[in-house]
Amino acid sequence: MIRPRTTLLVAFLFIVVAAVYYALSRDAGGTTMLVALGIAMGLLSYTLALGSPKG
């Protein structure tokens, strides 16, 4: 079973992609979407891992 804390790597991955995207394009709108996607995906994966049955 995946540990909930491990799933936060998903958020980190998207934040890294957002940082690279901003460094290359200087596009604040797209970067906002990527950062928010990271937050949302991190929240989703963390919650789903935390909420999965124990047994």
Partner: peptide, 26 residues
Amino acid sequence: LGMILFIASEVMFFAGLFAAYFNIRS
């Protein structure tokens, strides 16, 4: 659990609005 998943979708909803603001501003 349902509320957290809903909030995650709301994060993306507001992200779209913020992104539009940043795009227009830039």
